[in-house]
Design a protein around this nucleic acid. Sequence first.
DNA 1: ATATTATATCAATACCTATTGATATAATAT
DNA 2: ATATTATATCAATAGGTATTGATATAATAT
Lengths: 103, 103
Amino acid sequence: MENSQVNCKIEKEKLGELAEYLKIISDENRLKILCLLKHGERCVCEIHETLNLPQNLTSHHLKILREAELVIARREGKWVHYRLNDEKISYLTELYREIVLGG
Amino acid sequence: MENSQVNCKIEKEKLGELAEYLKIISDENRLKILCLLKHGERCVCEIHETLNLPQNLTSHHLKILREAELVIARREGKWVHYRLNDEKISYLTELYREIVLGG
DNA sequence: ATATTATATCAATACCTATTGATATAATAT
DNA sequence: ATATTATATCAATAGGTATTGATATAATAT
């Protein structure tokens, strides 16, 4: 009972979740943001200045990352600090490993 | 000399390569194809029948995967058999690990 | 040669999304 | 209150791409 159709059916529900994740992180600017946040929490202005992205574009990408729960926002006064959601990223990385790599 | 800007500059050249890979595999149908090919070489008709995709659409996605060198084609008579390019996928997975996960 | 099967390409559509410029909101300071 | 700084949203545009239907190519068989 271990054929590829069965396997693909089992993984099918997770496939959409993985595809959505991959789509979100397949943007160069969003990858840069994630890469930057690996080194710790950053506010929006730090992100857009460091990466040389317009403020509104940075905000836009952060919204997408935030809605996908890949990053977590924390307001402190005027500033909004963003950090990685490590658990979510770990979970989705495991999904990638499961679906794309070994069974 | 170990700040995020420097790191991101080092990784910058690889970032485009990773983004392209992620964009290609962020399509559900292409993920299904890769998932199917994990179990071994398949010809186009097997792929499109197993996954219930139109023949031309299957061919289209295979072309994208082939041009990205994620799969390798081998003609045998009327049939064209596709298989995973494990080395390329391993390389790009390592890139993902480097850039998105640990430094 | 013609027919059949397998695969690829082409053209058109329809949808999605990154980017930009302008504007709005939110918090603080004066 | 007004001003300033930080962030978010909105509208419009431009470019990309998944899908479909029709057609072409490639290999084999009759």
